[in-house]
């Protein structure tokens, strides 16, 4: 299958060529890439563990030490190094955000395709569920769910609970989008042709519907990631994070709880906020640009090759 491999490389090279010219997309990609690299190489970026307590010469904990006194970003109320919290916190924020985003994407795409392709009762059922989920305010619902699940004292890590709850509640917009797109694609002639050849549903979905949806799914996933990271930060800020594994949201929660603001400890509450903004902005820029670019029909110029079609033909003809 080396031909296919080459083709993929060719496509990738072409993709990079266009992508490179888009400044916003490059900026978004840079922001996301930096965040991911920080998360991956976290231990190499700091000398301290987030749980280490920094002490001064008299072995007293160094609390609310400004950056001039200690490290890159000073210490918090308990004497933990803020920079290392931020660096290791990126792991938690990104993992929760990415995993929740992927779950949302999978569930949303699968349900969206099923609803759009099969229509009828399946469509009605899925769409009514999304309607219900859309009218219930997300954040309170998640708060209640996360809190309730925690109470049940199941042996699940609090982070897993967060991931699943965000993932399973955040697929509705994806599902609607994918459904409407599927409806359009389903009516296109090449799908009718595939049916006329004798292809079954699974074949049509896999070979004809999914490839058209892929750009949309990819772009949408990147956008969903930003939402998922924001939601995670929100929930963690409200105290639903895992206190033993602080994410950026948890950091904000601590900062707020422990009067970092009244102490003027800006190095404690500003960095996690900026980090959250950094990643979600990156995802949004990247997602928008990808959506624009991955649409093949926007690429060609009308003077290249055949100049459009000559007859518009009777589009209305039902026969």
């Amino acid at each position: 299958m080396s031909e296919n491999g080459n083709l993929f490389l060719r496509n990738l090279a072409g993709f990079w060529k266009t992508f490179r010219q888009n400044k916003l997309g490059l900026a978004g990609g840079f922001l996301v890439l930096v965040a991911v690299l920080v998360a991956v190489f976290a231990p190499a970026l700091t000398d301290y563990d987030p749980s280490d307590i920094i002490r001064d010469a008299n072995n007293r904990a160094l609390t609310f030490a400004p950056p001039e006194v200690h490290g890159i970003l000073g210490t918090d109320d308990a004497g933990h190094d803020v920079w290392s919290q931020l660096v290791f916190g990126s792991r938690i924020s990104l993992v929760v955000g990415f995993m929740a985003g992927f779950i949302a994407m999978f569930v949303g795409s699968a349900l969206g395709i099923a609803a759009g392709y099969f229509g009828g009762a399946i469509d009605s059922l899925i769409m009514r569920i999304t309607d219900v989920l859309l009218v219930i305010p997300d954040l309170p619902l998640m708060l209640v769910l996360v809190a309730t699940i925690r109470q049940m004292e199941l042996k699940i890590s609090p982070l897993a609970v967060l991931i699943v709850v965000i993932g399973l509640l955040y697929w509705t917009s994806t599902a609607r989008l994918i459904r409407s797109q599927t409806l359009t694609i389903k009516e296109r002639q090449f799908v009718a042709r595939a049916r006329a050849i004798g292809a079954g549903h699974w074949h049509i979905i896999r070979k004809h519907i999914l490839p058209q949806l892929m750009p949309l799914i990819v772009a949408n996933t990147v956008l969903i990631l930003s939402t998922a990271i924001l939601i995670e930060s929100g929930l963690a800020f409200l105290g639903l994070g895992d206190p033993t594994k602080p994410s950026w949201g948890t950091m904000l929660n601590f900062a707020f709880d422990r009067s970092a603001i009244s102490n003027g400890a800006w190095w404690f509450y500003l960095p996690p906020g900026i980090a959250i903004l950094w990643v979600s902005l990156g995802c949004i820029l990247l997602g928008n640009v990808l959506e624009e670019m991955l649409n093949p029909r926007l690429a060609a110029h009308h003077l290249e090759g055949e100049a459009g079609m000559i007859a518009i033909a009777d589009v209305e003809s039902k026969g």
């Binding site: 090449f190 058209q212 093949p296």
Partner: peptide, 9 residues
Amino acid sequence: YESLNPRAT
């Protein structure tokens, strides 16, 4: 223009 899947070779 419509009866071929644009993403298939």
